[in-house]
């Protein structure tokens, strides 16, 4: 028998999503994205001259991402400033987004993406990637595709989509596996894969399929938000 989710969702059901583009007037592109109680905001600045100079690449512009939790986004106040966790997530976020960007027209320059989590209820990196992908598109940068991201997982033996915090802490049977993924919206290329927990190699295929379906829904939400900003 399939597991009952605490918030009554079906196994493949995402939390309600809210997406809005153009939320930070100073930025070249910006967006906010939420999965239920997880809210992430992203701003894009650039392309601009990259300093320090030794990091410049004459062949292409580069992408630089910063991800962090705001101090009050979690139960126990997070000490402000980067942690090893946030540095790791910043880097994997950069790797998740950069395949979709083409910055060859901006040699020696940088595109800075700032992602902050305002309210955390699991899936913060994936919400951040969704927001950042929209913000990059909003900034009008040359992109091959949007990036859609979702944390799938396994609760005991069931593959589920978009884990919330309670589910992340699930302990029965085979426990909880957290499996954040990101992919190109319209093709089968995965740009982020991380995992924590316990999953049989032969079951990864089901996770990939579930993530692919979920990303279709996320893509629609992202597109709708981007179109709204053009209308006004």
């Amino acid at each position: 028998m399939a597991i009952k989710r605490t918030d009554g969702r079906s196994l493949t059901e995402l939390r309600p999503m809210i997406a809005k583009v153009g939320v930070i007037p100073n930025a070249d592109g910006s967006a906010i994205f939420s999965f239920g109680d997880t809210v992430a905001i992203a701003a894009v600045y650039g392309p601009k001259q990259l300093h320090p100079q030794h990091m410049q690449d004459p062949a292409t512009g580069i992408l630089r991402c910063t991800y962090d939790l705001l101090s009050f986004s979690v139960h126990d106040r997070k000490k402000p400033g980067p942690s090893r966790r946030s540095q790791e997530i910043s880097k994997v976020t950069e790797w998740a987004l950069s395949p979709a960007l083409d910055l060859q027209g901006f040699p020696n320059q940088v595109v800075d993406v700032q992602i902050y989590v305002i309210q955390a209820d699991a899936g913060t990196r994936t919400a951040g990637i969704n927001a950042a992908s929209m913000a990059l598109a909003h900034a009008g940068l040359p992109m091959k595709d949007l990036i859609c991201s979702v944390a799938c997982g396994k609760l005991d033996k069931d593959i589920v989509v978009d884990l919330n915090k309670d589910e992340e802490d699930f302990k029965d049977g085979e426990g909880a596996t957290d499996f954040p993924l990101a992919k190109f919206a319209t093709s089968d290329e995965f740009t982020l894969m991380q995992l924590d927990g316990k999953i049989q190699p032969e079951r990864v295929k089901e996770v990939i399929e579930a993530a692919t379906e979920a990303c279709k829904e996320i893509y629609e939400v992202q597109k709708k938000a981007l179109k709204e900003v053009v209308k006004h």
């Binding site: 994997v92 790797w95 995992l195 999953i199 990939i208």
Partner: peptide
């Protein structure tokens, strides 16, 4: 066999 952890790094992508 259980996969306990996974991390993709660097820019290229992996297809399903």
């Amino acid at each position: 066999y259980m996969i306990n952890s996974c991390q993709k790094s660097k820019e290229a992508t992996f297809s399903s």
